Amino acid sequence: MDPADFYTGLVAEAYAPLKAFAQPSEAYEKFITEHGQPALELACGDGEPLLALRGRGLDVDGVAMVPLHIPSPTPPEQFGLRNEKITDGVTLAVTVIDQERDEDLRRQVSTLRYERIDGDRHEVLDRAWLMHWCTVDGFTELVTGTGLQVDSITQADGSPAGPEATDFTVLLRPS
């Protein structure tokens, strides 16, 4: 599959209404206001909160990339459970049907089944999502080769993130 085609069609249609949570834009806006523009949102998904920030006039771009957190494995009891939403008589659904996880390689592949049911029409698409996560040190090494330097790496409370942090915010500057 061409990577440009990955987030299209049924996957794009079902992503926003069926995602587990929404990112509030206020914390991002505060961070950008304190540290300056332009800003880059990594792992921007469907553009939330990126689009809200741009709508407020902030100079922010986004890129789908490695998450800055370690994703939790899907609990076994959730395999096969269908998450669905019905809007205007159309059912959008997503189901985790398989997952392979390798802690040593920091990689998880989750196969999701997307469905769109509209009357007699039933569209089904299975899509494998690859997530590769970085440690603090691994992310620092990754960005060093891009012409950027790490200014700070912090936890949600603003304290410095140690090498074993599982969720962190990175402030980058040009080298």
Rank of each mutant, 00 (worst) to 15 (best):
V143T: 14
D5C: 00
G55L: 12
V143M: 11
G80W: 08
P76W: 07
F79K: 01
Q99H: 01
F6L: 06
P174N: 11
Q99T: 03
R82W: 03
D59S: 11
Q108V: 02
G138I: 11
E41Y: 06
E103A: 15
T146K: 13
G89D: 11
D61W: 08
W133I: 00
D120F: 11
E34F: 00
G119A: 13
D61V: 11
P76S: 12
T154L: 02
S25M: 09
L112N: 05
P174T: 12
A128D: 14
M65T: 13
Q37L: 04
D157G: 02
Y7K: 01
L18R: 04
F21N: 00
D104V: 15
L112Q: 03
D5H: 04
K19G: 00
P49F: 12
C44G: 02
K85N: 10
L171M: 07
E84S: 12
G80F: 01
A156S: 10
L105W: 11
P73E: 13
D46R: 02
D59P: 06
A64W: 06
R116F: 08
H132T: 15
A12T: 06
Q99N: 01
Q23N: 09
L171P: 05
E164G: 03
D126M: 03
T146P: 10
E100A: 05
K85I: 13
G57W: 15
P76N: 09
M131F: 02
E41T: 07
S110F: 00
I86P: 03
E48L: 10
D61I: 09
D157K: 04
Q108I: 04
P49D: 08
W129M: 01
H69C: 02
L125Q: 11
A93D: 09
A22K: 08
T144H: 15
A43H: 11
L142H: 15
P24K: 03
P17K: 06
E77S: 12
E41V: 04
G158K: 06
E41D: 06
A156D: 13
P38M: 05
C134F: 15
L40I: 15
I86H: 09
L130P: 04
M131D: 07
G138V: 13
H122R: 15
T87Y: 06
H69A: 04
G145H: 15
G162Y: 06
V94M: 03
I117R: 15
H132W: 06
Q108R: 09
P75W: 09
L18E: 04
V63S: 03
T169C: 00
A156M: 03
E29W: 12
G47Y: 09
C44E: 04
P49I: 08
V63G: 03
H132K: 13
L125K: 12
R106S: 12
L125V: 07
P3E: 09
R82G: 00
T135V: 12
P49C: 03
P75E: 06
I86G: 02
E48V: 12
T95G: 02
L148C: 14
L10E: 05
G89S: 11
A22W: 10
H132D: 12
A52Y: 10
V63W: 08
I70K: 14
A16R: 14
L105S: 15
V11G: 00
A27Y: 13
Q149A: 15
G45W: 10
I32V: 14
H69I: 00
C134N: 15
A4P: 00
S72H: 14
P174H: 11
S152W: 04
K19N: 07
R127L: 00
M1V: 05
C44P: 04
K30H: 12
S25R: 14
L42T: 05
Q99D: 01
L112E: 01
T8K: 05
